[in-house]
Design a binder for these strands. Structure first.
Lengths: 343, 343
DNA sequence: TCTCAATTTGCATACGTATGCAGAACAATC
DNA sequence: GATTGTTCTGCATACGTATGCAAATTGAGA
């Protein structure tokens, strides 16, 4: 035991050929005779040789590494997306280098530097924004960036989101149609485009129906914050009869507070609607009505955008918005005759 | 725009010094005069230079990349561990390259090859086993491996788990003390050491109390399988009065079936105990009594073991088992006077 | 068998950095 | 100021691979 690394030079010697020949055998599309390929592959097999990706990338300028920046994995939507992204990229021969980051500028700056140090071929940020300066650095370094589930105005940044405005609007429509008169919102983080867009769409939808928000609080996309907001919002006698919560992760906290602390019935006393449709939402313990973010299609769009830039040299900045259906379940009163989009 | 990559050679020229000088300035512990450091850092700053990690690792033989092999992220325990592992390693200047893998030998073999191609400094497998041949390859390549939350007899593989046998035993003790007489088990995957050890400990605990398992089914660590098993196990009239489910992820499915399909009361009709203590377990919708796997300490042990091998050349194979407390909550009848370990 | 084109091979070099070695600069001591 | 010891610096080379170029081989056609 302990055979250590075996290099292309050793394989070459063992096979009685040049190092270049070995290299060519392992480079798809290079010019090699079948005889040579046989000889080399046999020698490689015997010595247990495999090309060193790092050395290769030094020459080719391609590391086949994609940097993924993610703030937290507590919200099930992100591990789910991570798994799908990783699988999709793996199928194309890429792998994901993970960078956890606290959602403030200092942390992101530091991490993004480390990212570029690894010569990543591309960057995906999940629910994380970027400073302009950072966007410039990536752009200068020729590293394409896709913001996943986060929008930003910068014209150099690709982005893939659900249609958050439209989603918010649909939910408003649904709640209004259900006869709710006192509608509140526990919003996603105001520092994020997703949070702002969902809220804006929601307000627009209410307005179109001649209603307006009874109350609105920033839940910061955090469980504790949302729970506190819910407690505060619903403890009084003049409580809302419906609430749209900015994502499912917070909606669970809100339902917990409503049902177990305030002993309210959902949806009897209050209708609750979330956003994301994470797996837990469909479990009967919550049975949450929610707007689905189609993570499969979002991942697909993210990967194809990224690979387009990396492998085909695309320069078209994509700002992709994907519509998702409202998943009607048991946490919100359903208007009579409302069509279930799941069908 | 498009300044492209800037190298140490350009910094050297710009500062009027040699390339080696630049390298030394960016190598901690190298011999450099303050004057030189100033000059170089200034030049580097002006050009926006950062060392190329890949080129560096070609020389040093250290990539500062840790490969993480993981089968699925659906069970919240794993994203949680991933986040903590990533943070801990980041603090030491390492990063995680993610490899998703289906839990069969073929997939693992393929992925492990890719892993070694990246010259990773170490490998962590989360809930994934390794063939002997694979273990040999890693060992030969000098790449240390830590199995996280999975045991295996191979004497070359480090491993960090909770004390699964003892955990299972504790749960048996708890259920027996609670006066349950018809105790069943929906086990973790029989192909995993964790599943087998928990079951063995559980059986041992029952036996010590003069009881034996009423029924036992393999839940494969999968939600659907566990749900089906629960339905089958509890639909008859002679159903168990308590069930230990091999992990929380399955326990939620079991509770869903018991409460929403079979209309049974938990813990009135049936006590349910899980294993892991994922965040969701403490939410009031489930309020699951469960044995905590102390992920913080498990991560800590994993990281220090790995870094011991990588940075200090340790050769001591560690087989670490960490005890966890039983988290007493509302899903299982509590024996009178039972001490709550949380205190 | 000889010629010419097409294919395959080897040589040399490049990628961006780290490091042993020897010489240069410097500080300290007498 | 000469001598010693110490700290810095530059030179050269190495890490493992890919690739342009020229030489070598192959095969076809006459």
């Amino acid at each position: 035991m302990g055979s250590e690394k075996v290099t292309s030079v050793e394989v070459a010697r063992h096979a009685g050929v040049s190092q270049s020949a070995v290299s060519r055998v392992f480079t798809p599309g290079a010019s090699v005779s079948p005889k040579m390929a046989d000889k080399v592959l046999k020698a490689a097999e015997e010595l247990g040789y495999r090309p060193n990706v790092l050395a290769r990338s030094l020459i080719t300028g391609r590391s086949r590494i994609i940097g993924l920046v993610v703030a937290y994995l507590e919200n099930q939507f992100y591990p789910d997306a991570l798994e799908k992204l990783s699988n999709a990229l793996q199928a194309h021969g890429y792998h994901i280098l993970v960078f956890m980051v606290s959602n403030d500028d200092a942390g992101i700056d530091k991490v993004m530097g480390e990212l570029l140090d690894y010569q990543v071929d591309g960057i995906i940020t999940a629910s994380v924004g970027m400073s302009n300066e950072l966007a410039s650095r990536c752009s200068n370094a020729g590293v394409p960036v896709v913001l996943f589930n986060r929008g930003q105005d910068d014209e150099r940044l690709n982005q893939v989101t659900s249609n958050n405005f439209e989603g918010g609007r649909k939910i408003a429509e649904f709640l209004v149609a259900g006869g709710h008169k006192r509608i509140a919102h526990i919003a996603g983080w105001a520092g994020s485009s997703t949070g702002r867009d969902r809220e804006a769409g929601f307000r627009a939808g209410l307005e179109a129906a001649g209603q307006e928000l009874l109350a609105c609080v920033d839940g910061m996309y955090r469980r504790e914050t949302a729970a506190a907001a819910a407690l505060d919002m619903f403890k009084g006698g003049d409580r809302p009869d419906a609430v749209f919560v900015g994502n499912d992760h917070m909606a669970f906290a809100v339902m917990d507070v409503l049902r177990f602390e305030l002993k309210l019935d959902v949806p009897g006393d209050v209708s609750v609607v979330g956003y994301d449709d994470v797996p837990l939402s469909s479990w009967p313990a919550y049975d949450l009505t929610t707007l689905r973010q189609p993570s499969n299609r979002m991942v697909e769009a993210t990967v194809s955008t990224l690979l387009g830039w990396i492998e085909e040299g695309s320069k078209d900045v994509q700002k992709i918005k994907i519509d998702g259906p409202l998943m009607i379940r048991g946490s919100a009163r359903v208007p009579e005759g409302w069509p279930n989009e799941r069908l």
